[in-house]
Every structure is written in structure tokens, then in C-alpha cells.
């Protein structure tokens, strides 16, 4: 197991389940015997604001915030939020991206333009993007709701946590009626996440 601190940045829009995936990742790391610190900005998260969670784990972790440009992975449930927070991760680090655009208020009001070609921008800057279409998730699950857990599945390929640990945490965190759906989404993400060296 990698012993230096690993930092995962999880971003999205209020209501997308950003905080839930940060909670699951934190617990999975803690159950794997690592020290974990996670931090989030909520408060206004429910009101459609931008949500940023950071999860850091390793032998010994001090700051719950990761220094800019040192994060190891970015999990983004929305494209603009991926672009907004990309500076937090290392150059060439991997971004797990749901291809989905949620127009923010200034764009809806015509006061700003939603940046075009975000995935190309990220790839052009040297990041490695593992994307999934929202529509693809809908066709597989009839809903894109478990996108957060699906992307955790993709991320899980890069971490050394046991599958049983993930399952335990996901079952603990998600209410009974949605457990099987989310576990299936996690497994699918894990299968889709082929590590290219």
C-alpha cells in the first residue's frame, strides 16, 4: 500500500451527491487502516451552489486541505466544476468526469457563457480524463443519480482498498431501497475503469 498522503478532490453542484461520495471514500480509507482527513464546504450546498470536498489519507495526515497543484485525483460530477477546480490537482493527474452540464445562474440569466469544449481543454492541458456520459448512465440504470458512486468505482481502480471494504461502506451509507442500484453502479464503474499505463 502507498504510504504517502493521497488527496482526492470531489466536486459538483449541490444535490449531486458530492458529500456522500466524499463520506464513502473517507470511510473506505479509514477501514483500510489509514489516517483520513476530509473537508467540505456545505452550508449553502443545497441551494445549487458549487460543492468542493477534499479527502486526504495516508500514514499521517495534517491538513484537511490539500495544497494547490498536489491533489492526486479529481472526481467531477459536472464539467464546469471540473474546470474550476482543476488547479487543485497535479499536472497530468486523472480526472473522473461525468459529461454533464448544469447551467449556473449567471449563464441562465445570459450574463455569462458556459465554456465550450471543457473536456478537450482538460485533455489539452495534459490531464488524463476518464469520462462517462450522463446519457450512458441513464441507459444503464434508468437514472443518472448514482453517477457519484459510479465515478467512485472508476476511482477505486487506482486505490488499494479491498472490494469488501467498499461494499461494506456503500451498504452502510446508502439507504436500503437504493443499495443494490448503487452497488451495481460502483461495480460497473470499477469494470469500466481500465487502467492505462
Amino acid at each position: 500500500m502507498k504510504r504517502e498522503t493521497t488527496s482526492v478532490i470531489i466536486v459538483g453542484v449541490g444535490g449531486q451527491g458530492t458529500l456522500l461520495s466524499a463520506g464513502i471514500l473517507s470511510e473506505a480509507a479509514a477501514l483500510s487502516g489509514l489516517e483520513v482527513k476530509s473537508s467540505e464546504v456545505h452550508g449553502m450546498a443545497q441551494r445549487g451552489g458549487s460543492v468542493l470536498s477534499q479527502v486526504r489519507f495516508g500514514e499521517r495526515v495534517y491538513s484537511p486541505l490539500s495544497p494547490a497543484g498536489t491533489g492526486d485525483y479529481l472526481v467531477a460530477l459536472e464539467e464546469l466544476e471540473a474546470l474550476r477546480y482543476r488547479q487543485l490537482i497535479r499536472p497530468k493527474a486523472t480526472i473522473f468526469l461525468q459529461r454533464k452540464r448544469i447551467l449556473p445562474a449567471p449563464v441562465l440569466a445570459g450574463a455569462a457563457v458556459y465554456p465550450p469544449g471543457i473536456e478537450e481543454t482538460l485533455t489539452g492541458e495534459g490531464y488524463r480524463v476518464e469520462g462517462v456520459d450522463e446519457a450512458d448512465l441513464v441507459s444503464r440504470f434508468n437514472t443518472a443519480k448514482p453517477a457519484n458512486i459510479y465515478l467512485l468505482g472508476r476511482l477505486s481502480r487506482h486505490l488499494d482498498f479491498e472490494l469488501t471494504v467498499w461494499k461494506r461502506v456503500i451498504y452502510r451509507y446508502i439507504k436500503e431501497s437504493l443499495r443494490d442500484l448503487n452497488w451495481a453502479a460502483f461495480r460497473l464503474g470499477r469494470e469500466d475503469g481500465n487502467i492505462r499505463k
Partner: peptide
């Protein structure tokens, strides 16, 4: 200021 559009919280 960031050139990206902000995402302020809004009334639901």
C-alpha cells in the same frame, strides 16, 4: 477574478 462563470447559490 476567475474568468469562469460563478455558481452562486440560488433560491430553489
Amino acid at each position: 477574478p476567475s474568468p469562469l462563470p460563478g455558481r452562486p447559490p440560488v433560491m430553489c
